[in-house]
């Protein structure tokens, strides 16, 4: 027996969750100048279920591009500081893709490494990830090259697979949180014989990631000519890092004046030329080549050695949105050869 969520009951699901103070976030359509991302959904027809992948990744719901951390008031004798933590709003992300779901699981270790990051954890604890397996892909998708798949459940609480008749999805609870969610839906889900499922899309491997990680781990390759060759046209902007669901560097900025202000956490990028500029004036990564090397090494060498995951899910956004058609695939294919 399988549990089915019918498309024509999505609206009911959203209202039922709303009545339980649970907000539903889903992929929004790219129309009227707005870009595709995860937005609060009031009705099911606001959800874009057709697009292969949102432009902005699900990362924005947990690690927004800018967020306040605390406010401060400076008086004569004292400084009053107030932490600003995210609210504990219960949320369901409906329509996440397996590559984005995987990124969340990959980042949990990082945000709980040397201390527990409340900004990340609060949102993670209060959010249920309901992913939909991919029946379509585009030229930039490369999840299978990272040992993931268009129907991978890694990082998802619930995984939905489309029925071939287009009427809805087969629902599979993956985690405990997912099981509780599925149970809470009760009679919203129909129990029936497992339906015929729509074919999962096939994503050909673009590179051999094991070979890449092995090569990157060898000390002498740090000085390889490959880095400057591959990065020659890199503009040093932040598109790849900001669109990437696993990139997590941030900058802290105080905004205010001598009397009061707010401390904020903003996205930052290791591609920027001044990212590693020291107060002394020395910059250990003075060339775009050294910054490109850092990007690849971090994702395929340093991060896996600390957190047992390569910090890449093969979503392809780095290549899809790079202004000069770069992205990790080209470099990794060159290494693989």
């Amino acid at each position: 027996m399988a549990k089915i969520l019918r498309k024509d009951r999505l609206n009911e699901m959203i209202s039922r969750l709303a009545s339980r103070n649970t907000a539903v976030f889903g992929p929004s359509p790219e129309a009227d100048g707005a870009i595709s991302q995860f937005r609060l959904m009031q009705t099911s027809d606001e959800i874009d279920l057709e697009r292969v992948l949102t432009r902005l990744s699900v990362k924005s719901l947990f690690f927004p591009r800018t967020e306040p951390m605390m406010r401060f008031d400076i008086a004569k004798q004292s400084i009053d500081m107030q932490q600003i933590l995210p609210d504990e709003q219960k949320r369901v992300v409906f329509g996440c893709r397996p590559c984005d779901a995987a990124s969340l699981a990959m980042l949990d270790g990082l945000f709980n490494w040397d201390y527990a990051d409340a900004f990340w954890n609060r949102r993670r604890e209060n959010t249920t990830i309901v992913s939909i397996a991919c029946t379509r892909k585009d030229d930039f998708c490369m999840c299978t090259s990272l040992d993931l798949a268009p129907d991978s459940s890694f990082g998802s609480d619930v995984l939905l697979k489309a029925a071939s008749d287009g009427a809805g999805w087969q629902v599979e609870a993956i985690s405990d949180k997912g099981r509780r969610f599925v149970e809470s839906l009760g009679d919203l889900l129909v129990e029936q014989n497992p339906p015929e499922l729509a074919a999962t899309t096939v994503v050909e491997k673009k590179f051999d990631v094991a070979k890449v990680c092995e090569w990157a781990a060898q000390d002498e390759n740090f000085e390889s000519d490959l880095w400057s060759q591959m990065s020659e046209r890199c503009l040093g902007c932040g598109v790849c890092t900001y669109m990437c669901p696993t990139c997590h560097c941030f900058d802290i900025q105080d905004e205010g004046n001598a009397y009061r202000g707010v401390r904020r956490k903003n996205w930052d990028s290791c591609s920027f030329s001044l990212f590693t500029l020291h107060t002394s004036g020395h910059n250990p990564r003075p060339t775009q080549a050294s910054r490109w090397r850092q990007r690849i090494m971090h994702k395929f060498n340093y991060y896996p050695s600390k957190f047992q995951h390569r910090s890449c899910t093969g979503c392809g956004r780095c290549t899809r949105y790079c202004p000069v058609d770069m992205g990790v695939a080209e470099t990794l294919q060159a290494i693989g050869r």
Binding site: L235, C237, N266, S269
Partner: peptide
Amino acid sequence: QEQFSKCIRCYACRQACPMCYCRRCIVE
């Protein structure tokens, strides 16, 4: 206001622009 609210401050516009060659941009 609506258009700029989309901006993620990736500075791709600046990096792609041939006239933006300042080694330290005003925003830095």
